[in-house]
Nucleic acid binder design. Sequence first.
DNA 1: GTCTATATTCAGATAGAC
DNA 2: GTCTATCTGAATATAGAC
Lengths: 212, 212
Amino acid sequence: MNTPMITVPQTQRPVRERILEAAEAVFAESGYEGATVTDIAARAGLPKSNLHYYFGTKEALYEAVLFNTLSMWDDAFQVLRAERDPAEALAECIRLKMDLSRKRPNANKVMTGEMLQGAPRLNTFLNTTLRDQVAQSMAVLNHWIELGKMDAVSPMHVLLSIWAMTQQYADYNPPIKALLEKEELEERDYDAATDAIVQLVLRGCGVPQATA
Amino acid sequence: MNTPMITVPQTQRPVRERILEAAEAVFAESGYEGATVTDIAARAGLPKSNLHYYFGTKEALYEAVLFNTLSMWDDAFQVLRAERDPAEALAECIRLKMDLSRKRPNANKVMTGEMLQGAPRLNTFLNTTLRDQVAQSMAVLNHWIELGKMDAVSPMHVLLSIWAMTQQYADYNPPIKALLEKEELEERDYDAATDAIVQLVLRGCGVPQATA
DNA sequence: GTCTATATTCAGATAGAC
DNA sequence: GTCTATCTGAATATAGAC
């Protein structure tokens, strides 16, 4: 029952992290222009002048949120490796990407908001890093196709489809909740969606699945 | 070559339409909060006080854009009718929805922006009209399944997948352009995407396709 | 119905004490 | 590093002439 004096109470975590977390939530709820530094500061429990002290401008804080988010997406697609079984690798990729929509919906929403505005702050990233990352995943799919483990589908369209179907569960939560007649989605809703997407992709690509 | 005096020049189309068109573009580019009445007025070629005269508030103008957009989405899914051939009906539905992403990207972006914010202005619609519309489409898919024309997939997840994959071509245009290394997507890019999505859905649902 | 000019509010950013 | 108080610009909305 004694609280160790050494552990740092949650309200005293590093200030930068608290600010970034609050910014992710507020930018997601209100968009870049709609979010106010005052709101973010209130959510982080700080006066707004502190945000300017740590990040300079609202824009710089926003970009910090964006690039923090980008790194998470890549992890999901990195599981697509040539030596793996296509069914297992694709299923894991879909599950990881869906987990991000479930556990970090705000991060996903902020990124979608940036895309809607033409992604002016991501131009370089999209045309360099992202392009390389996707090219690698496409090469893996092409490898599977050459080995006859997969039908001759268009790798880029398959990857984009996985991206879109999983992203929807973060961005389009309101209509999905309405269709399921629920106040909030539960874990089993995400699991059911994941299963449906996995089945659609695997069968759509002619990838044999384990029947278990 | 003579211009009939009776036709109305484009710059003098009904004022309300000009305002709505300008609003759709500006709200799409900047989001609800980021858009300014001044910008919309400039794009429509009017002083901003006129927008207040016609629509009252910025919010009312925004809602007019939203509900104008909602009606377009339903049209695409109305082609799913029980008496039709599943392959043809699903392909047409996907093509119509993709046409909207191509021809009316701004309308789609405004709607996605509203979804990101939790769709506060669409709550009633989502829980009444939309739910009924989707229930009808789901019934059609269930009918096809009972007739053995389709595998026992989850109708709701299939419909959501079509929605997501086509929506992506409006909302996520920047990364798609980057991957295709193009300044703007061309009609054949949308056609190729439509074909890929149709193939994925039909094969994923076990719907026999014409081999032509 | 259409415009100019203005009232009012609130945002991002900063100054300067502690 | 952290806070209070304040500056400055820009947004929505309106008043009122034409």
